[in-house]
C-alpha cells in the first residue's frame, strides 16, 4: 500500500508544495505591502518540504485538489462543532445530575470507511466529541471506543449511535 519513499511522484510534490505554500502565506500574510522576499522564501521552503516529504503525502493527490471536498470539509467543521456542543451539554448533565447516570465501557464499532485518512478523521472526531474516545483501531475496520454511557454492546447498534452521524460526511470528504 505504501510506496517507496525515495521516489515521490511529481503530483505528490506539487500537492505538498501547494498546501504548504498556502499555509505559509496565510500565516505570514505578505500582501499588505507585497513582501516578495517572504513569498519567495515561502516558495523555497514549500519546495523543500514537498521534495523531502512528498513521498509521505496522500496516496491520491488529485483528490486533494478537488474543491468540492473542501466545501464538504467546511460543512463538517460546523457540523462537528454542533455535535461537540450537544455532547458537551449531555456530559455536563450527566456529571451534574445527583445520580450520576453513567455507564462507562468500551464498545466495538464497525466503520464502512476504507481510506486511512477517513478512518483517522473518524477516530479523531469520536475522540473530540465528549463522552466518547477512540482507544484502538484494527485493520478490518473495527474501532474500539470508550463510551461514557454504553446503551448497547451490539456492534450494529453501537455503530449507529457512535459512528453513524460522522460517516456520511467523511465519505464525501475523503472517498
Amino acid at each position: 500500500m505504501e510506496e517507496a519513499a525515495s521516489k515521490p511522484k511529481i503530483s505528490k510534490i506539487v500537492f505538498v508544495f501547494t498546501v504548504t505554500l498556502a499555509v505559509w502565506l496565510l500565516f505570514t500574510w505578505p500582501f499588505a505591502p507585497v513582501n516578495w522576499a517572504m513569498i519567495i522564501a515561502g516558495s523555497l521552503v514549500s519546495l523543500v518540504s514537498g521534495i523531502v516529504l512528498g513521498g509521505l503525502a496522500t496516496l491520491h493527490p488529485v483528490k486533494g485538489l478537488n474543491p468540492v471536498r473542501y466545501f464538504w470539509g467546511g460543512c463538517y467543521v460546523f457540523a462537528l462543532a454542533w455535535w461537540v456542543m450537544v455532547a458537551n451539554l449531555d456530559v455536563a448533565f450527566r456529571v451534574l445530575h445527583p445520580d450520576v447516570p453513567i455507564n462507562p465501557g468500551i464498545v466495538k464499532v464497525k466503520t464502512e470507511l476504507k481510506s486511512e485518512s477517513a478512518k483517522t478523521a473518524l477516530a479523531n472526531s469520536i475522540t473530540l466529541t465528549p463522552g466518547t474516545m477512540t482507544v484502538d483501531i484494527s485493520d478490518e475496520g473495527y474501532l474500539y471506543v470508550h463510551w461514557i454511557n454504553v446503551s448497547s454492546t451490539e456492534v450494529e447498534e453501537a455503530t449507529r449511535e457512535v459512528v453513524g452521524r460522522f460517516e456520511w460526511l467523511l465519505r464525501r470528504i475523503f472517498e
Partner: peptide, 11 residues
C-alpha cells in the same frame, strides 16, 4: 496524522 502534519512541521 504524521502524514498530514509533517510538511507543516518542517516548514
Amino acid at each position: 496524522v504524521t502524514r498530514w502534519v509533517s510538511p507543516f512541521i518542517l516548514a
